[in-house]
Design a protein around this nucleic acid. Structure first.
Lengths: 265, 265
DNA sequence: CGCATCGTTGAGTGAGCTCAATGCATGTGG
DNA sequence: CCACATGCATTGAGCTCACTCAACGATGCG
């Protein structure tokens, strides 16, 4: 296993002129359908039978609505009642917890096609908060509908289990990272994971724009923002990266991967 | 949330003379039944309807067998095909990953009544290995049977989802610990969590015997075995603990809790 | 324009790491 | 039963990586 470590961090990268929320608005009036969605290969439907996807599409649109988010808006807060699972349509989110001293601990980043909110199933309340790191759009999927669907379809039932299990595995990898890697290894793992996820979505694997601050990266990786910044500079001096604020170009992915040769077996 | 952080670590503590595996052997010949099990309140059946438990009991015993383990034996290896979920009947286990350099990363500890192996659902292979830290006994529950049961019972379906989600939440807390706590806070959190879990099983919350080495604790908490040892000594000097090798007595649980006042909200 | 946010860099410090020695308990074989 | 080996825990000494505190520039927003 090659460190799924960071199946979580993310940043949707679009170099094409960004659509403004206004430009995208008209589309929202039509009923969203999984079967038409450009993310159906990556998102929830990828593990569902076409008949189940159609059943999902057939559900009341009020209960399965798109929701437009502005940067810095919070989709749900920790402790809030858990009702929906959210699929990211566009934009980037962070999941985080607030510690007693006011500091926040970022537990994951989510990009287009990824699901958020499954941690709420355990208690019926969200265990973390989800905040948009840029203007974004999500599909709100009522969890009750999903379980209803699952009741009649072992395929969908398995899908939900697999998605949750994947989350468990992802977090195990992150624990590994936090427990046994130094600053350079952590940042390298983060960037390579991000790169991989972007590539799967058709974006460039070697050049992208980070949507999160140094502080957020640091919180996620268990280091301070200063150390993140210094490590970026170090990578640049080693000619592994070109860094211009949040714009990243990976020059030597292999050397970067070599920075964290922590592989199993 | 009061740091579920360590819903994982553990150590079943029995001061009563330990039964030898031989002494327990005869019991194994009878068909194990959840409905009789002394752990039914804690284990899988706690979230199931009695009719579902009976259906679980009705399944072929060959497919739902107890398995006796010797200390240091491995129940399953990472990468191995995922077929069973295991419930710990007695003894303690660790889950771990092996890093490229040969070091092991412990990702959780499991005590009686706890489930292991759900990380295998994602890929169909176990993502981690499970090793007995002492002589132990598990129930092997075929995952296929569980999903079959779930197909006909939304209650069991929800239970599986809840168990997985709980695992996600647990790991999030651990990430929080690894990302933002110092050595004393980590060890305090570990001990208090362990204490809580033991108490739930009827053991003393204030005095127990660790089944894992300092190195294993260190791996789990992201620190070296020397630091674990020094931190135990420091707690002892602060009169928070009495430590004699693996025997622990918590003298001042409140002060210990104060050592990691990292609570949400 | 002024203020806030973000990122970079420097200097000094310290928590936890590495390396090493020692003690204790247990197991094994002569 | 003793000699020896092995595994685990403790403790010390020194070092280093990442932290804290601080200053400063760039960017963007009201």
């Amino acid at each position: 296993m090659s460190l799924a470590v960071l199946e979580a961090p993310a940043a949707p990268i679009r170099f094409a002129p960004r659509q403004t929320p206004e430009a995208m608005a008209p589309a929202a009036s039509s009923k969203p359908r999984c079967s038409n969605c450009h993310l159906r290969e990556l998102c929830l439907p990828s593990g569902m039978s076409s008949s189940d996807v159609m059943r999902l599409d057939g559900l009341d649109s009020l209960m399965f609505a798109r929701r437009r988010m502005r940067s810095a808006q919070t989709l749900y807060h920790e402790g809030e009642r858990f009702q929906f699972v959210y699929a990211v349509r566009s934009g980037t989110f962070k999941s985080s917890l607030t510690l007693a001293d006011g500091r926040e601990q970022v537990s994951s980043f989510h990009i287009a096609g990824e699901l958020m909110g499954l941690d709420g199933v355990a208690q019926g309340n969200h265990a973390s908060s989800a905040t948009a790191l840029e203007d974004a759009e999500v599909c709100a999927i009522p969890y009750a509908h999903l379980t209803e669907l699952a009741a009649g379809s072992s395929g969908t039932q398995h899908l939900i289990s697999r998605l949750m299990s994947r989350e468990i595995v992802r977090e195990q990898s992150l624990m590994m990272l936090l427990g046994s890697m130094n600053a350079e290894e952590r940042l390298a793992a983060f960037l390579l994971n991000l790169s991989k996820r972007l590539k799967a979505r058709g974006y460039s694997a070697s050049e992208f724009h980070l949507r999160m601050t140094r502080a957020e990266i640091g919180s996620y990786l268990g280091m301070t923002l200063e150390t993140v910044s210094r490590t970026f500079s170090a990578f640049q001096q080693q000619r592994l990266l070109e860094v211009d604020k949040r714009h990243i170009r990976i020059l030597d992915p292999d050397a970067l991967a070599g920075a964290f040769e922590i592989r199993v077996h």
